[in-house]
Every structure is written in C-alpha cells, then in structure tokens.
Design a binder for these strands. Structure first.
Lengths: 269, 269
DNA sequence: GAGTGGTCTAGACCACTGT
DNA sequence: CAGTGGTCTAGACCACTCC
C-alpha cells in the first residue's frame, strides 16, 4: 500500500486486500487475518477495518462466518444456460413417448438445465391472478392460476441453482389431473411435454432479463452474500394461437450463471 | 416499528424506512431526516443509523450527497433492449444507402438502442489481444485489435445507459480507413454497416449474460450505488464464413435495463 | 457559519464457533 | 474456554453545500 493517498484509509485497505486476493496471495477458501489482527497490521481502528471488509463483501470477494472468521470466496462452478437451443430441444422431445424421453438421460424441466445429477423440490398452490399476472395472461384479475415453485440444485452442492415461480391457467391445466399433483414432479419431458398432454404447442418464448441485488431471503436460499447480484428472468410462453400459456420468474445467482442466447440472421440474397 | 424484535436495531430501522418509502410516505426525491435527527428519533447512535442507511443504499432505495442530505431515489426510466429483433433490423438496413439509413431517424449502433435522442462518446485504440481475446477470435495472442470504447447516454439524462468495449481485428478493419477514425462516430447504420463496407455479412450473434456488482469506476460512471447490480453482456458476432469478426462487452445498469430475447420454435408438422 | 454526510477512534457487550 | 465476527455507543474532525 503506497503512502500519501488522498482516498479514505478503509478504501486503501480494501484495495490492498483485493489485490492480494486477485494476485493469488490469498487463495480461495483461505482465512483472512482476524479483524483485530488487521487493525494492528494497518494501524487502524477495528471499525475502519470492518468498513474495508464490508467493501470486499460488496465486491463479492469474501464472506464472513460469525465465530469463525472471514474467508476468501471460491469462484463457484458456473452454469451455462443455452436458452435458444434448449427451448427447441425441449420442444423436439415433447412429443416423444416417455421411454425415449427417459433415454436422453436428462431431467428436463423449466430451468433449461440438463445436468444428470439434478435434484429439486416443488410446491404447488392455487392462487388468484393479481393485476400484473392478469395483464400478462390477458385474463381478468382474480382468475385462478396454478402456481408452481421449484428449488433446483445439483446433488453435489446444496445451494440451489435457481428459484422458479411458474404460473399456468388452472382451467387449462385441470384437463389433466396429473399436472396438478406436485408429487408427479419432476415431470419427464418438462413443461413443454406437460402442455403437450393438454394439446398445447408452443411457438414463441420471450425471455426478459434484469439484474438486481438479492432480497434477504433469496440471498439466504441461494447461499450468496447480499453483495452478489441475481439475474431475474421473466419467461413468457406463447402457443401457436398466440395465447400466453405459461409465465415464470426465475431467480439465478449472478456469480455462477451465464445465460446464452443465439440469434441467427437471415442471409442476404 | 414494533417493539420486541430479536433482529438488530439497525435492520429494523432500515425496514421501517423502507416501508415508508414503499408506501409513498417518503416520495421519490424527498429528503430523509438527517442522520442526527434519525438517531434522536429512533434513540440510536449515529453509527447505527448510518448502518441502517447503508442498507437502504444497498437496496438501491436512497442516495446520499455530502453536505446536502440523503434522498429517496426516483425509480429510473427502464430501457428495453429487444435483441432478437434489433440484430435482424440492423442487418436489414446495413446494405441501404446512407440517405435511407438516415431516414429511419435512429442513431444505430452497437448498443441495440434506437432512441432518437441518443448521445455518446467514443474512443479508439489499437491493442494487442490477450489470451482471452485471442481465444475468442481464434488468433495468436498479441494480434493487433481495434478497441472501441463507447459511453452512451440519452440527452435528457446525464448518466450513461451503457458502457461498451468492442474489439475488431485491425487487419480486417484497415481496409476502410474511415472505420479507424473515432471522429466518424456515430457511424450511420451501426457496426453491421461498417462491416458491410468491408464485405462482411453477419450470420450469428451470440449473447452471453451475467450479473455482478459494479466495479467502483463503473458505479461512478453509470451513476449507480455500489449496491445496484450491473448486467454484463458478452456479444460475439460471427460472419457467414464462421469467423468471429467482433466481440464486445457491454455493461448495463441492472436497475434500468431489461434485455429481451424472443425464441421462435419450429412448428410441428 | 450552520448543517450535512464521510471518516475514524476506543472502547463495550453479544452470539457464535472451535477446543 | 478463548477467539471470532456482529452490534452498538459517544464522542471527534473533516469536506462539502447552502445561505
């Protein structure tokens, strides 16, 4: 750390520690000096040192555990979600019989993931459409919807890869009682196959993407610091008749998710 | 604020103020009580009150100005980036003559925005490809690249909508000296038209999206708090011969940007 | 000059984790 | 138990803005 710097001391400390982490002197998983040690080391009060550590948390570089210490975060396994290909792939398989679908070896569902070792929990409820959902589906507010919530994770890690809230019109789904039974999840073939059993063919899927800091409960469930961002995906599925048949909100941890979209352009003559 | 709560006082204060903001009792733009006033009001030290305010900043709800006060942030105008349509639209116009392109009334370029009142600054430099860029373009490390940096904003607001770092192979671009002159920006017709003057036709565009907290300098330039997220878009443009001809990194403020991708599925027979 | 937020100190007690 | 981070206090001085 250089002398004579006009910036706040705690920022200088934060940057010094950041550089140590980025240079690999403080490898992922290693413990930092304790706050009291750091305050001696940098000749600062513990409050200022905590300020510096707060910065590092906001940058997503460290995490603290009460009673233990502060550790350098390991860059976690990043997961690619190739939406363009995935949606078509799911559609291609939606009409196949269950054996063929099973043979793909993939647990296919809403998240677009096809890792072989996925695990998830589901919860179904019936809710009434609020103004926002009513607008999306083009139905009156108060219309009954089937709300499906998913917590998806890989078996190897316990922190979920995604949180999903998915909505379907109850009156449409009711034609196949199996679809209203959360115990039937994971449905082999995914949502598009579920819709196929109702005679619905999807034609268009619209992804809308934003980023924001996680809500406290999301940070908790996804096992991320408040200083890490989440991707918010609003996915609208439209069938061949132009009806909105499904809407889902997917919350993804920004530090481990990469969403891929491929646009193929028409050739010039 | 209810009595008897096991959570930290500063969190309770933050939530109390958050609720006041969400209920509209503290409208956007209004000043909050000063830190000293708040510490009297809640019977807490100024440090704890500052802790609460830090929370509100992390949630993106308020901003402080030294010497003035702390103000409720106005929810900013959200900008939609409809990538799927945009890329094709840009390609359709790339071959038109300049008059026709001008007639569309849009300043078209890399960001995918077509607001009529866009303003931006550009900076061109020649750099050598690092390992990462070399891998993307499939060229040896050290190959000369034209690096173009853009700061885009609307004329009505002074905070930029996006930061763009775009890379092109210098040896390809050199065929048209106009393209290496930053004073020629904004190029009517955008990047696809620039490439057209070199005889290059794009066929595929790959968008890769992630979210993370902003770096300090990004937060500064985009005028967002460190507690607000940014969307990071890595866009790779591939021509009809499968060559990567452009790579760009776009930084977008997560609180005002929504990226839209439309996937059209093939019809069942 | 008065008031604001930004930084910083030198303490204190607590909850939690290890041994 | 000792050591850790989490919370909190009651001060202080500073840079900045507005009047």
């Amino acid at each position: 750390m250089t002398e004579r710097d006009w910036r706040p001391r705690y920022i200088q400390v934060a940057e010094d520690l950041r550089d140590q982490i980025l240079r690999g002197e403080l490898p992922p998983g290693s413990a930092m000096l304790s706050e009291t040690d750091l305050s001696e080391r940098y000749d600062l009060s513990r409050t200022s040192v905590r300020n510096a550590i707060k910065q590092l948390k906001d940058w997503g570089l460290v995490r603290s555990k009460q009673g233990q210490g502060t550790y350098v975060r390991a860059p976690r396994q990043r997961v690619e979600r190739r939406h363009t290909e995935r949606y078509q792939w799911e559609k291609d398989r939606a009409r196949l019989g269950e054996p063929e679908r099973g043979e793909t070896g993939a647990t296919e569902f809403d998240t677009g993931l096809d890792l072989p070792d996925l695990e998830f929990r589901a919860k179904y409820t019936i809710v009434e459409a609020d103004d926002n959902l009513a607008g999306i589906f083009g139905v009156p507010a108060g219309t009954a919807l089937l709300k499906r919530e998913y917590w998806t994770s890989t078996r190897s890690e316990d922190s979920p890869l995604s949180l999903v809230r998915s909505y379907l019109l109850r009156d449409i789904v009711a034609a196949n009682p199996d679809l209203m039974d959360e115990a039937k999840e994971p449905w082999p073939g995914g949502t598009q196959n579920q819709l196929y059993t109702l005679g619905i063919e999807l034609e268009t899927i619209v992804d809308r993407l934003t980023a924001r800091p996680p809500l406290p409960e999301e940070a908790d469930v996804l096992d991320i610091e408040v200083g890490v961002s989440v991707l918010v995906l609003h996915k609208t599925s439209i069938d061949t008749q132009g009806r909105v048949v499904e809407f889902s909100e997917v919350i993804l941890p920004g530090d481990r998710t990469e969403i891929v979209h491929v646009t193929t352009l028409e050739r010039w003559a």
